[in-house]
Amino acid sequence: MRLSRKHLTLLVLALLIALAPALFPSNFYYRIGALIFVNGLAVTGLVVLIGFAGQISLGHAGFAGIGAYACALAPGYLGLHPGLAMLLGAVLSGGVAWLIGRPILRLKGYYLAVATLGFGILVSMVLANEAKITGGPDGREVAELGLRGALATIGIGLSNAQFWYAATGLAMLLGAWVALNLHDSPTGRALRALHDSEVAARTVGVDVARLKLSAFVISAVYASLSGSLLALMNRFITPDVAGFLHSVELVTMTVFGGVGSVPGAILGAATLTLLPQALTVLQQYENLILGLIMMLVMIFMRDGLLPSLMRRLKGRG
């Protein structure tokens, strides 16, 4: 049997994650890799929302904030294991997305963008101002997940950086699998249909409001898990995780890499996480060159990095 596109994509991703460490000159690169995977998980959720369903959000860092602070607060206040706190954060984010999504998703285009933007700002303000609980703008320590120690007792000894590289890589891979499943499923087809023509989707029986809401909730859970992983990995979190800048960063990565494509968005996350590191040699020109590259890619590769490259490879560009 021929390998399906889904399995091919997952295989390539898995190989890249597994083989990349062979090229790492130092332990520091495991950390960069883990950051890429954490962002990769969040942008995969945005592919579901923006790429499949065609709905924009400039506030998804708000859900990352909920996920991150669930891990920071639930172990202390509720006595939950950090792993369970991550699940609690996901449930909480999904619930909040469901509540705010119902009124917000009636809006379209830039109205929706501004409304979601407001939500993100709201979350980061709460996290920054409720200093007694959240630690305020200075941030807060996060408990140790403890899984690395457990692995060590059964003979798998990993450095902290290696452990988080593997854990976040696995999480991103799982996230990609789920999103690719969705793409070719009945729900995925209905989402993509309403993206292209809402009226036609309605006339074939698609409950447009319900499906938009589903996509919003799914993408919120992705963002939440990404925030949780970031908090657990860094053992420290500040309200910046929920900030406007982080929301914009995530959307930029998604669109830059290819908004309709899961591996595309992940490539976008990788490129825009790596580029600033690589461009530090340019010192004060770093941001200038970064901005220039982003503009050029969007002008000449409108569908995003990966879809445009694939089309050129197939000779249709």
Binding site: R192, H195, G260
Partner: peptide, 8 residues
């Protein structure tokens, strides 16, 4: 005026 799902 056709309402096709163009990207599918």
């Amino acid at each position: 005026n056709l309402q096709i799902f163009q990207r599918m």
